[in-house]
Simulated scan of single mutants.
Amino acid sequence: MKIGVIGIGVMGEPIARNLKKAGLDVTVFSRRPESCEPLREAGIAVAGSAAQAIAASDAAILMLPGHKEIDAVLGRDADGRIGISVEGKTLVLMATVAPAYSIALERAVVAAGARYVEAPVSGSKTPAQTGQLVVLAAAADPMQLDALQPAFDAIGKRTVRCGAVPGAMRMKLANNLLLIASFEAITEAVHFAAAIGLDLRQFLEMAQAGPLANDVLRMKAPKLLTDDFERQAAISQAFKDIGFVCDEAEALGLWLPAARTNRVVFGEAMRRGQADEDVIGVIKVLRDGMPMTANA
């Protein structure tokens, strides 16, 4: 299989490496050409544009920050039509976007003569590096997922098939509601433990020995002990995704108090310029004692 990866960053780079390691023919493109140089040195082909990467591939993964960047690389016009040649190709959206946007993008891709697959992934930097992501996949035709399974197996430990679009995106949002709540709860518990005079190392060792021990706690505990805010999962991504959750909930008339509170907390971290920090950076907001407002 010839596969493209468009968007080379914290997730895109290890995904491209693992696809190459699995023996697939990989071509990459980034809006920041310098980010592709380590992959070029590893023997991976680098395209000069998204159109070239798609032309060189049977399927092209879009691992981009959001709607704006996806539209830009596909050359979508004001009416949503795709401006580059994608006919006969499969476009695989691995970014997390609003379900309504994914539905609209599927229509545009099909109108342009191509196939569309949703495949957002659960996991951050370390699982991406080790090929331990969970792939959430949805498509109009299950055979499209069958064709992509070797690529999914190269980057993930499990593929969860979620029916038709936007089933995978909705699954991802439900998962991220749980994940983001976990990030904030762990950070808040550490903040509370410090404030009441506990030994933080002892507290975190106890937590990891108890019923709430999990991979998230294991990854975040050493970072919280040292105020290591280098990103594994960025505050900007958590804020974007919890916003999508809240938008979906509001459209359905659902009350999700934890989601709404986390939109405020992560939004405050964004306002303070912490977008590129790891999610545990919200502990700075907690330390400053930001009062919750009516916007929660």
Rank of each mutant, 00 (worst) to 15 (best):
Ile3Leu: 14
Gly4Ile: 00
Ile6Asp: 00
Ile6Tyr: 03
Glu13Asp: 10
Pro14Val: 03
Leu19Pro: 02
Leu19Val: 08
Lys21Trp: 14
Ala22Ile: 08
Gly23Lys: 09
Leu24His: 15
Thr27Tyr: 01
Val28Asn: 08
Val28Asp: 04
Phe29Tyr: 15
Arg31Asn: 07
Leu39Gly: 00
Arg40Trp: 00
Arg40Tyr: 06
Glu41Phe: 06
Glu41Met: 13
Glu41Ala: 13
Ala42Asp: 15
Gly43Val: 12
Val46Phe: 04
Val46Trp: 11
Gly48Pro: 13
Gly48Ile: 01
Ser49Cys: 07
Ser49Met: 12
Ser49Pro: 00
Ala50Ile: 02
Ala55Met: 04
Asp58Gln: 15
Asp58Asn: 14
Ala60Gly: 01
Ala60Trp: 03
Ile61Phe: 11
Ile61Asn: 02
Leu62Ala: 04
Leu62His: 02
His67Asp: 10
Lys68Ala: 15
Ile70Thr: 13
Asp71His: 11
Asp71Met: 05
Ala72Phe: 13
Val73Ser: 01
Leu74Cys: 13
Arg76Phe: 12
Arg76Thr: 13
Arg76Tyr: 11
Asp77Lys: 14
Ala78Glu: 15
Ala78Cys: 09
Gly80Cys: 08
Gly80Met: 04
Ile82Asn: 01
Gly83Glu: 07
Lys89Gln: 02
Leu91Phe: 01
Val92Thr: 04
Met94Gln: 08
Val109Asp: 00
Ala111Gly: 12
Ala114Thr: 05
Arg115Phe: 02
Ala119Glu: 05
Val121Tyr: 04
Thr126Ala: 15
Gln129Pro: 08
Asp146Tyr: 05
Ala147Ser: 08
Leu148Arg: 03
Ala151Ile: 08
Arg158Gly: 07
Gly163Arg: 00
Pro166Lys: 05
Gly167Phe: 03
Ala168Cys: 02
Arg170Glu: 15
Ala174Phe: 04
Asn175Asp: 02
Asn175Gly: 02
Asn176Cys: 07
Asn176Gln: 08
Leu178Gln: 10
Ile180Leu: 05
Ile180His: 04
Ile180Phe: 00
Ala181Gln: 12
Glu184Cys: 06
Thr187Lys: 04
Thr187Asp: 02
Val190Gln: 03
Ala194His: 11
Ala195Pro: 05
Asp199Thr: 07
Arg201Glu: 13
Gln202Glu: 13
Leu204Lys: 10
Met206Lys: 13
Gly210Arg: 13
Gly210Thr: 10
Gly210Asp: 10
Asp215Ile: 14
Val216Trp: 04
Met219Phe: 14
Ala221Gly: 09
Leu224Pro: 01
Leu225Asp: 00
Leu225Val: 07
Asp227Ala: 11
Asp228Arg: 13
Asp228Lys: 03
Phe229Gln: 01
Phe229Pro: 03
Gln232Tyr: 12
Ala233Phe: 15
Ile235Met: 06
Gly243Phe: 02
Val245Ile: 13
Asp247Arg: 09
Glu248Val: 10
Gly253Ala: 07
Pro257Leu: 12
Asn262Asp: 12
Val265Phe: 12
Phe266Ala: 06
Gly267Met: 05
Gly267Ala: 06
Glu268Ala: 05
Arg271Asp: 12
Arg271Cys: 11
Ala275Asn: 12
Glu277Leu: 11
Ile280Glu: 08
Val285Ala: 00
Val285Tyr: 06
Leu286His: 01
Arg287Ile: 07
Asp288Asn: 14
Gly289Met: 03
Met290Phe: 12
Met290Tyr: 11
Pro291Trp: 07
Pro291Cys: 09
Ala294Glu: 08
Ala294Gly: 10
Ala294Cys: 04
Ala296Thr: 09
